[in-house]
Computed example of a mutant assay.
Amino acid sequence: MPIDAARALAADPRRSEIRWDHKDIQLYHLGLGAGRPATDPDELRYTLESKLHVLPSFATVAGAGMAMLGGLGAPGIDVDLAAVLHGGHSIELHRPIPVKGEAVSHSKVAAVYDKGKAAVVVLRSEVADADGPLWTSDAQIFVRGEGGFGGERGPSARSEDPDRAPDRTALQPVREEQALLYRLSGDWNPLHADPEFAKLAGFDRPILHGLCSYGMTLKAVVDTVLGGDVSRVRSYRTRFAGIAFPGETLRMRMWESEGRVQVAVTAVERDDAPVLADTVVAYA
């Protein structure tokens, strides 16, 4: 069997050293569409080194985001990458991410769930620097054709949107070249750049990275609900419910409650086709 759940769960964590500085932060923020208008003081917090703060979703690309790929090579995990989809992602922040850092990441398979016709592998990375834990990141990897092995089905994170009008709605245009810029932070999948490769994958043109939509959404919540204060974010999760294309507009509908914002993200030009669902930002 390509997935040996017991072996994967028992494997020792993989240790890697990661580092970043202001250039990595700025490039990531620009890849999310930050810097419009370029001289806006609120946007300079994302683009100018003397004023820089770090959007917590940077955790997904720190160290070029190698933890997820490394996890797919863990003992007991032998799958066809063509059958792999990034189903969802969550991060828990233990404290604000510094603009410059050196840290150690320990990555492991935290869970393997049997969904019947597919398996879900949860790849967890725990990152700490000399001052202690920084963040914990979970990637939910959906592997088609690998279910049916008799394992636990696992929890469901799905939740209905509130039955009321959203408290806020943000419209975020995706620049035509945004995927080309975002991929410089470490995700070199040609699906996001090469039209011929995209057609082989069943798309008429390259698609935007799901984690780019993820970062764009967190930025919108920080800017509109949290007053631009990235340090208030405690955790952030989403399910990748669909795709977005460069050149489209993302509609982000937000419902606020105490310490929590629920968000639904859709593509405006495709009749509000879903992009992100079950999306929750918890904050202090």
Rank of each mutant, 00 (worst) to 15 (best):
G228T: 12
M68Q: 13
G242A: 08
T224P: 06
E176G: 02
G35L: 09
P37H: 12
G145V: 09
P195T: 03
V84Y: 11
I243G: 07
A201M: 15
A241V: 10
R14T: 11
R95E: 03
E176A: 13
M252N: 06
Q140P: 01
R153K: 14
R237M: 05
K108F: 04
A244C: 14
A119N: 08
R45Y: 03
A34V: 05
K51C: 06
Q178W: 07
E17N: 03
G116S: 02
V99H: 00
L52P: 04
G147Y: 11
T60S: 14
M216C: 06
P274D: 07
V222L: 05
V174K: 06
R260S: 15
R239T: 14
F142Y: 15
I243F: 12
E177M: 07
Y283K: 01
E49Y: 00
L211C: 02
G87K: 03
R237C: 02
R205Y: 03
A220V: 06
Y214R: 02
V268H: 04
R237T: 06
A139G: 12
V233D: 05
Q178K: 05
M216G: 01
I243N: 13
W135T: 00
K51H: 13
G101S: 09
G150N: 05
L44I: 01
L44N: 05
K117C: 01
E177W: 10
R234M: 05
